[in-house]
């Protein structure tokens, strides 16, 4: 396993685009955190009655335990950036035909895929750890008093966030393997939410229970949007096991489909 991961990292670590995208990703991650208050002001401006009924400066956006879910959710928006990196990494293998040479040189198709999947796991893990650290530090800075009893309520969103990123990267990898061209894959990746949205909207009236089984929907449901709580609405503040189960099944299907496609193809 380690050997396969090393092989893929060897390809990536000398690739400038990889560092640029990863750099942008992590910088944006930090910026999102820093710009949270601006976001609140925006909410106050756009959501009716939001700014009047409460003082936005007293919203515990960065306080324990709210900070966990808040940051996990907003970081989830950025996973598209590493997903694009994953698409580039796999479609490059087709463009350069190095996937063919890798097999000729002795990798099996399964090993080739695994080397990409392991990289996805590593990227997901790094994202999770980074967001966790950012949340921890932010929470320590902003919280007026620390109470160990509830300070870590909501940390469970971090494994869920890990799954969210990994599931989405698996989806991106599958798209890359199916489409093989970087431009088209990235456009499809960006539009996949829209496509899913259109389908969901059209079936909403007939089979509403089906919505939560949609792939991207299930990934989004892992860490639900928390901000409605500041408008005194009920939110889901724990990880739903059903959402985890659905997302796990999709993750498996994405990777299995990649494997099946790769196995069948002439390279």
């Amino acid at each position: 396993m380690l050997q396969l991961l090393k092989i893929d990292l060897k390809k990536l670590t000398s690739y400038r685009t990889f560092w640029i995208i990863c750099g942008l990703y992590f910088i944006t991650l930090l910026m999102t955190t820093a710009s949270g208050m601006e976001f609140l002001k925006w909410l106050a401006r756009t959501v009716e009655g939001f700014g009047q009924s409460i003082n936005i400066n007293r919203i515990p956006l960065y306080h324990f335990p709210d900070v966990w879910q808040n940051l996990a959710w907003s970081s989830g928006l950025l996973k598209i950036m590493i997903a694009i990196m994953v698409v580039i990494s796999i479609t490059n293998e087709y463009a350069y035909r190095t996937i063919r040479q890798n097999i000729i040189d002795g990798l099996s198709r399964k090993e080739f895929l695994l080397s990409k999947v392991y990289t996805n796991l590593l990227l997901s893990l790094l994202s999770m750890v980074l967001v966790f650290l950012v949340a921890l530090v932010t929470g320590l800075i902003y919280s007026s008093h620390l109470n160990i009893d509830y300070m870590f309520d909501g940390v469970e969103f971090y494994p869920a966030y890990f799954l969210e990123v990994f599931a989405f990267l698996s989806f991106a990898l599958m798209l890359g393997i199916l489409v093989q061209r970087s431009g088209l894959s990235i456009i499809l990746l960006l539009n996949s939410y829209l496509i899913e949205l259109i389908i969901k909207e059209n079936i909403d009236d007939y089979v509403p229970w089906l919505i939560k089984f949609f792939p991207l929907e299930s990934i989004m449901n892992l860490v639900p949007m928390p901000f409605a709580r500041y408008a005194f609405q009920q939110i889901q503040d724990s990880v739903s096991l059903q959402a985890v189960a659905i997302a796990l099944v999709w993750t498996f299907l994405f990777n299995y489909f990649s494997y099946w496609r790769l196995k069948k193809a002439d390279l």
């Binding site: 050997q3 090393k6 092989i7 690739y15 400038r16 190095t98 040189d105 002795g106």
Partner: peptide, 19 residues
């Protein structure tokens, strides 16, 4: 067939890992 952005040496290192 090689990775165009890698040096000859690095390409061979990669192939040595694969082989």
């Amino acid at each position: 067939i090689f990775y165009p952005y890698l040096s000859g040496q690095k390409n061979l290192e990669l192939n040595a890992m694969i082989k």
